[in-house]
Design a protein around this nucleic acid. Structure first.
Lengths: 331, 331
DNA sequence: CTAGTTGCTGAAACTAGTTACATCCTGGGG
DNA sequence: CCCCAGGATGTAACTAGTTTCAGCAACTAG
């Protein structure tokens, strides 16, 4: 049969004290050593584990940090979570993770769930929800951090952690030009602000070097299934480089390219976002975000809960490997 | 200033009813349509969000499912989590995720945290904790699922979801022999039961085909930093195949091999555990676990909470690519 | 020897809900 | 016209803790 769990009352009875005293032993109030000894003995004997939920209801909120991720399979998010997790663990905060599978309806439901759970703070990788709950939560005293986007006109408690996406695009432009490439094509989801900014940065960077990025050279693919068509449309153009502005589609684009017998960097340079464990083996040049650091920052914003809204912007970095060919010296 | 959050009492006052009635509206008791209307209106006006913590303390436990992962970076775990998450979402259960970073002390603390949070059930990828809390939790009515290990003499409520690791080893043996390889070396952590079983299965499979697997051909590496030495020691032997029995070290071993200029499969066949997104591009042959299905099963065991302990064993599958060379017909 | 201070402890109120039970009101049947 | 059934609603007890406040004992100072 299922053993009934011991409550603070059971411990108190065992030790011959009141529940108040047990609570004080647990939370560091003034208690005689002798009393504390008896209480600890009772706790051990009864295998008492305090109920964090009850604690939280009294405190008004739980110690848990909520994290909502759009797509767990993206390498960026994995490192982000590790960063969050590390800080959370250091502060004894459990992490509640939800994966939206890229569906907005699930996202709204998950933000609500986190609110119902009275999380200590919320980290979202999806922007504000359409119902505005994130904003209300922030105003209500639950620090919220939007990752990978900036927030227009944020109230106190609504922070953001993002990349300088425009700089990332320019970094790509400079590198490609430096490798002697002049006709660049892009694959983008076309919807997410971060990708739009990266594309804009790329266009600007290329323009400054006298290189064009016509609208026809920007192909839209939002999921793996659309990648093949997008790549196909780009290959109809006389390009010497393909850029992917989201790490999530790197595999699919690389596969589409090799499936068509394209040699990298022989036929085409290939440059993408977000470093990943196999990139060195494949020689793929990438622009990385400091994902781990961004995760740490996001968690710190939750834990330290600054009064003013913070907009933390991180700098991208390019890791040059072989997929764009040799850097020529003319740059 | 921070807005005070509305409670069920505020809603009741707004609607001119008692808290009991509000609770009934929320949880489906008998209420007049007119009353329900006023209550809903009050809920909307006050932006009332019920407190899941308080609900849980009355119910005796929360609806959250706890998941403790040893190492988030392993591809196996990512799919496992996706499977868990899918089932959890279908049942409206939030998922609380903890990453042990492969440290036993953190693991013990995290199991305790999950217990304190009164999780509905617990899924662990780390075996029972040294303090036996997992077992006590199971006996106390919190279903626990150990993933990737079987559990000796499990009490009701302590389930396991694992791979037939021995079969995975044999699968490797058959494939390598079929590709004409006869001198196999292994890299293993040497500690985890799953890896020991895979190695045993490999040895048995090879033995049945008349091939040896001497102790000297089994190199131990538990972390990325130890891989280079392990691979070095194997390369001193006259081998024609290297097997890795953990997906976590695939990148590191592959890197160590290519760093030494080893051609795959020319100089050496390479065979590893767990499929990953880049494996097709690299032509790496793998033995996979049905990670997604295993995650679903684990979550279902938590949700359905069968009385008797369940030991679910899944079958491995080999995905042949090019890293072991051509299948010759002599097999 | 008494008054004041200090430190430990317990009773009771509080957190935000749920639910058993009592009560009220209405409608139908005798 | 009265009684009873039955549904809607409220009261109060309950969940498992924390915290305030009051009491009491012991110790110190006058």
């Amino acid at each position: 049969m299922v053993v009934k769990r011991a409550t603070i009352g059971d411990v108190a009875a065992q030790a011959g004290v009141s529940t108040a005293t047990v609570s004080r032993v647990l939370n560091g109030g003034a208690v005689t050593e002798a009393t504390a000894g008896r209480v600890w003995e009772a706790i051990t004997r009864l295998e008492y584990t305090p109920n964090a939920l009850t604690r939280s209801i009294f405190a008004g909120r739980s110690t848990t940090i909520g994290v909502i991720i759009r797509d767990l399979s993206s390498p960026f998010y994995l490192d982000l979570i590790r960063g969050i997790d590390e800080v959370a663990a250091a502060y004894g905060s459990p992490v509640m993770l939800a994966n939206t599978f890229r569906r907005t309806d699930r996202e709204v439901a998950q933000v609500r769930t986190m609110d119902e759970q009275r999380v200590r703070g919320l980290i979202v990788t999806t922007g504000e929800t359409p119902d505005g709950r994130t904003r209300r939560m922030a105003e209500g005293g639950t620090p919220c951090v939007i990752v990978t986007r900036t927030v227009p006109d944020p109230p106190p408690g609504l922070h953001s952690v993002s990349l300088d996406n425009f700089a990332a695009g320019r970094l790509m432009a400079t590198h490609l030009a430096g490798c002697g490439r002049s006709s660049v094509g892009v694959v983008t989801s076309g919807r997410r602000p971060s990708q739009i900014e990266r594309t804009a940065g790329l266009r600007q960077g290329l323009a400054e070097l006298g290189l064009p990025l016509p609208g026809t050279a920007v192909a839209v693919a939002d999921s793996e299934s659309e990648v093949s068509d997008a790549v196909g449309s780009l290959l109809a153009l006389p390009l010497d480089a393909i850029v992917c502005v989201t790490g999530r589609l790197t595999v699919a684009i690389h596969a589409a390219l090799t499936a068509r017998g394209i040699a990298i960097p022989g036929d085409l340079a290939f440059l993408t976002m977000d470093d990943f464990p196999w990139a060195p083996a494949l020689g793929i040049t990438v622009v990385t975000q400091p994902a781990y650091e961004m995760g740490r920052k996001a968690a710190q914003l939750v834990v330290h809960h600054p009064g003013e809204p913070v907009q933390a912007v991180f700098e991208p970095a390019l890791i040059a490997r072989t997929s764009c060919g040799e850097l020529s010296l003319r740059a």
